[in-house]
Amino acid sequence: MSQTILAVSLTFAQVCLAIAMALAALRMSRGPRAQDRVLALDTLYVNSMLLLMVFGIRTGKDIYFEASLVIGMLGFVATVALAKFLMRGEVIE
C-alpha cells in the first residue's frame, strides 16, 4: 500500500521536475537577454538539485543527498560569477 502511494507521488514529482527543467532550458535557449539565460541556468541548477533529492528518496540511498548539496553549491558559485561578469565584464578585478 505505502509502496504504491510512494511510487505514484515519486513519479509525479519526477515528471514535474523534469518538465520544469525542460521549461528552464527552453528559456535559456530563447533568451532574450544574457540575464535571462543566467537566471535560467540558476533555475536549472535548483531543479536538478531537487530532482536528485527525489531520486534519493526513490532509491533510499544517502549518496544522492551529497550530490545535491554539491550541485547546490556549484550553482550558487556559478551564478554569482556570471552575475558579476554581466555587471563588470570580468570576474576577478
Binding site: 509525479f12 514529482a13 521549461l23 528552464a24 528559456r27 535548483v46
Partner: peptide
C-alpha cells in the same frame, strides 16, 4: 507523498511562470 507533490508542483508552477 503530500510534501513531494506540493514541493514539485510549486517548483513546476514557478518555472511555468518563469
Amino acid at each position: 507523498s503530500f510534501f513531494l507533490v506540493v514541493g514539485s508542483g510549486l517548483t513546476l508552477i514557478g518555472t511555468i511562470g518563469f
